[in-house]
Amino acid sequence: MSTTDIAPEQDHEASATASRPLEIAFAAIALLCSATYLFLGTQIVLRKEAAPGQIDARFWPIVLGTTAVAIALILLVIALSRPAPSRDDIDRIQPGGVARVIVTGALTVAFVFSWSFSTMVLFGYRFEIFPIATAIYLFLLMLVYGHRRWVGLIVYPVAVTALIYVLFGMLLRIPL
Protein backbone atom coordinates (compact mmCIF):
# COMPACT_ATOMS: atom_id res chain seq x y z
CA MET A 1 0.00 0.00 0.00
CA SER A 2 1.29 3.40 -0.87
CA THR A 3 0.06 6.53 0.79
CA THR A 4 1.99 9.03 -1.26
CA ASP A 5 -1.09 10.27 -3.06
CA ILE A 6 -0.72 13.63 -4.69
CA ALA A 7 -3.51 16.09 -4.12
CA PRO A 8 -4.44 18.80 -6.58
CA GLU A 9 -1.96 21.70 -6.53
CA GLN A 10 -4.35 24.20 -4.95
CA ASP A 11 -4.80 21.93 -1.93
CA HIS A 12 -1.05 21.86 -1.28
CA GLU A 13 -0.77 25.58 -0.84
CA ALA A 14 -3.76 26.00 1.43
CA SER A 15 -3.55 26.09 5.21
CA ALA A 16 -5.98 24.32 7.54
CA THR A 17 -9.46 25.79 7.64
CA ALA A 18 -10.97 27.31 10.76
CA SER A 19 -13.34 24.92 12.49
CA ARG A 20 -15.79 25.87 15.22
CA PRO A 21 -16.75 22.27 16.09
CA LEU A 22 -13.05 21.49 16.55
CA GLU A 23 -12.58 24.43 18.92
CA ILE A 24 -15.69 23.43 20.89
CA ALA A 25 -14.55 19.81 21.08
CA PHE A 26 -11.08 20.87 22.27
CA ALA A 27 -12.49 23.17 24.96
CA ALA A 28 -14.96 20.49 26.12
CA ILE A 29 -12.25 17.83 26.33
CA ALA A 30 -9.94 20.25 28.15
CA LEU A 31 -12.74 20.98 30.63
CA LEU A 32 -13.44 17.29 31.14
CA CYS A 33 -9.76 16.45 31.67
CA SER A 34 -9.23 19.41 34.03
CA ALA A 35 -12.31 18.51 36.08
CA THR A 36 -11.18 14.88 36.28
CA TYR A 37 -7.72 15.98 37.38
CA LEU A 38 -9.22 18.29 39.99
CA PHE A 39 -11.46 15.51 41.32
CA LEU A 40 -8.56 13.04 41.47
CA GLY A 41 -6.48 15.75 43.17
CA THR A 42 -8.99 15.97 46.02
CA GLN A 43 -8.82 12.18 46.39
CA ILE A 44 -5.05 11.92 46.89
CA VAL A 45 -4.41 9.74 49.92
CA LEU A 46 -2.34 11.59 52.54
CA ARG A 47 -0.16 9.72 54.99
CA LYS A 48 -0.56 12.51 57.52
CA GLU A 49 -1.99 15.99 57.70
CA ALA A 50 0.39 18.83 56.83
CA ALA A 51 1.76 20.91 59.69
CA PRO A 52 0.23 24.39 60.16
CA GLY A 53 1.51 26.78 57.49
CA GLN A 54 2.76 23.97 55.26
CA ILE A 55 1.11 22.59 52.15
CA ASP A 56 0.21 18.96 51.66
CA ALA A 57 0.34 16.78 48.53
CA ARG A 58 -3.17 17.86 47.48
CA PHE A 59 -2.66 21.63 47.58
CA TRP A 60 -0.71 22.18 44.34
CA PRO A 61 -2.81 19.79 42.20
CA ILE A 62 -5.99 21.48 43.47
CA VAL A 63 -4.59 24.93 42.61
CA LEU A 64 -3.63 23.72 39.11
CA GLY A 65 -6.90 21.82 38.58
CA THR A 66 -9.06 24.77 39.65
CA THR A 67 -7.16 27.17 37.39
CA ALA A 68 -7.35 24.74 34.46
CA VAL A 69 -11.12 24.27 34.93
CA ALA A 70 -11.59 28.06 34.94
CA ILE A 71 -9.47 28.55 31.79
CA ALA A 72 -11.16 25.64 29.98
CA LEU A 73 -14.59 27.09 30.86
CA ILE A 74 -13.65 30.48 29.42
CA LEU A 75 -12.28 28.73 26.32
CA LEU A 76 -15.55 26.79 25.95
CA VAL A 77 -17.66 29.94 26.27
CA ILE A 78 -15.50 31.68 23.64
CA ALA A 79 -15.67 28.64 21.33
CA LEU A 80 -19.48 28.55 21.64
CA SER A 81 -20.07 32.27 21.26
CA ARG A 82 -17.42 33.53 18.82
CA PRO A 83 -16.32 32.57 15.31
CA ALA A 84 -13.49 30.04 15.16
CA PRO A 85 -9.97 31.54 14.95
CA SER A 86 -8.04 31.17 11.70
CA ARG A 87 -5.53 28.33 11.34
CA ASP A 88 -3.25 30.02 8.81
CA ASP A 89 -0.17 28.75 10.63
CA ILE A 90 -1.15 25.08 10.25
CA ASP A 91 -0.69 23.15 7.02
CA ARG A 92 -3.70 21.37 5.58
CA ILE A 93 -3.85 17.58 5.96
CA GLN A 94 -3.11 16.04 2.56
CA PRO A 95 -5.01 13.09 1.07
CA GLY A 96 -3.43 9.91 2.36
CA GLY A 97 -1.89 11.72 5.35
CA VAL A 98 -4.21 10.28 7.97
CA ALA A 99 -3.84 6.78 6.54
CA ARG A 100 -0.05 7.19 6.61
CA VAL A 101 -0.10 8.10 10.31
CA ILE A 102 -2.56 5.35 11.26
CA VAL A 103 -0.57 2.67 9.42
CA THR A 104 2.67 3.99 10.96
CA GLY A 105 1.09 3.89 14.43
CA ALA A 106 -0.21 0.35 13.91
CA LEU A 107 3.15 -0.90 12.63
CA THR A 108 4.96 0.77 15.53
CA VAL A 109 2.64 -0.82 18.10
CA ALA A 110 3.14 -4.20 16.40
CA PHE A 111 6.91 -3.67 16.41
CA VAL A 112 7.01 -2.76 20.11
CA PHE A 113 4.74 -5.72 20.92
CA SER A 114 6.93 -8.18 19.01
CA TRP A 115 10.05 -6.68 20.61
CA SER A 116 8.62 -7.47 24.06
CA PHE A 117 9.25 -11.17 23.26
CA SER A 118 13.02 -10.97 23.41
CA THR A 119 13.74 -14.36 21.78
CA MET A 120 11.95 -17.12 19.92
CA VAL A 121 12.81 -20.73 19.25
CA LEU A 122 12.42 -21.94 15.66
CA PHE A 123 13.55 -25.31 14.29
CA GLY A 124 15.46 -25.92 17.46
CA TYR A 125 17.42 -22.65 17.20
CA ARG A 126 17.04 -19.60 19.46
CA PHE A 127 16.66 -16.31 17.57
CA GLU A 128 16.73 -12.76 18.91
CA ILE A 129 13.54 -11.00 17.90
CA PHE A 130 14.85 -7.42 17.87
CA PRO A 131 16.99 -7.43 14.70
CA ILE A 132 14.43 -9.38 12.70
CA ALA A 133 11.52 -7.23 13.88
CA THR A 134 13.46 -4.00 13.25
CA ALA A 135 14.39 -4.93 9.68
CA ILE A 136 10.81 -5.97 8.86
CA TYR A 137 9.44 -2.83 10.54
CA LEU A 138 11.71 -0.54 8.50
CA PHE A 139 10.95 -2.47 5.30
CA LEU A 140 7.20 -2.08 5.81
CA LEU A 141 7.49 1.61 6.73
CA MET A 142 9.43 2.32 3.53
CA LEU A 143 6.81 0.46 1.57
CA VAL A 144 4.07 2.53 3.18
CA TYR A 145 5.90 5.76 2.40
CA GLY A 146 6.00 4.88 -1.26
CA HIS A 147 9.47 3.42 -1.78
CA ARG A 148 9.36 0.77 -4.48
CA ARG A 149 12.97 -0.01 -5.41
CA TRP A 150 13.92 -3.43 -4.09
CA VAL A 151 17.56 -2.57 -3.52
CA GLY A 152 16.62 0.29 -1.22
CA LEU A 153 13.90 -1.74 0.46
CA ILE A 154 16.39 -4.45 1.38
CA VAL A 155 19.67 -2.61 1.88
CA TYR A 156 18.44 0.33 3.98
CA PRO A 157 16.54 -1.71 6.65
CA VAL A 158 19.37 -4.22 6.93
CA ALA A 159 22.03 -1.49 7.17
CA VAL A 160 20.13 0.55 9.78
CA THR A 161 19.33 -2.58 11.80
CA ALA A 162 22.97 -3.64 11.74
CA LEU A 163 24.08 -0.15 12.81
CA ILE A 164 21.63 -0.09 15.72
CA TYR A 165 22.47 -3.63 16.79
CA VAL A 166 26.22 -3.11 16.70
CA LEU A 167 26.24 0.41 18.16
CA PHE A 168 23.64 0.05 20.89
CA GLY A 169 23.42 -3.66 21.48
CA MET A 170 27.11 -4.56 21.30
CA LEU A 171 29.10 -1.38 21.97
CA LEU A 172 26.82 0.47 24.41
CA ARG A 173 25.51 -2.83 25.83
CA ILE A 174 21.90 -1.73 25.86
CA PRO A 175 19.79 -4.90 26.30
CA LEU A 176 17.81 -4.76 23.06
Partner: peptide, 29 residues
Protein backbone atom coordinates in the same frame (compact mmCIF):
# COMPACT_ATOMS: atom_id res chain seq x y z
CA UNK B 1 -4.16 32.09 21.78
CA UNK B 2 -3.08 33.01 25.30
CA UNK B 3 -5.79 30.81 26.84
CA UNK B 4 -4.52 27.77 24.95
CA UNK B 5 -0.97 28.67 25.95
CA UNK B 6 -1.95 28.91 29.63
CA UNK B 7 -3.74 25.56 29.35
CA UNK B 8 -0.58 24.08 27.82
CA UNK B 9 1.51 25.43 30.72
CA UNK B 10 -0.99 24.05 33.24
CA UNK B 11 -0.98 20.68 31.45
CA UNK B 12 2.81 20.57 31.83
CA UNK B 13 2.59 21.53 35.50
CA UNK B 14 -0.05 18.82 36.02
CA UNK B 15 2.24 16.25 34.41
CA UNK B 16 4.92 17.39 36.85
CA UNK B 17 2.69 16.43 39.80
CA UNK B 18 2.54 12.78 38.76
CA UNK B 19 4.71 10.61 41.00
CA UNK B 20 5.95 10.99 44.54
CA UNK B 21 5.54 14.31 46.36
CA UNK B 22 9.06 15.01 47.62
CA UNK B 23 8.06 16.72 50.90
CA UNK B 24 5.87 13.93 52.30
CA UNK B 25 6.52 10.94 49.98
CA UNK B 26 2.78 10.75 49.20
CA UNK B 27 1.98 9.19 45.82
CA UNK B 28 -0.03 11.29 43.39
CA UNK B 29 -1.83 10.09 40.25
Amino acid sequence: SMLKGILAGLFGLMLGTVGTYAATADHRF
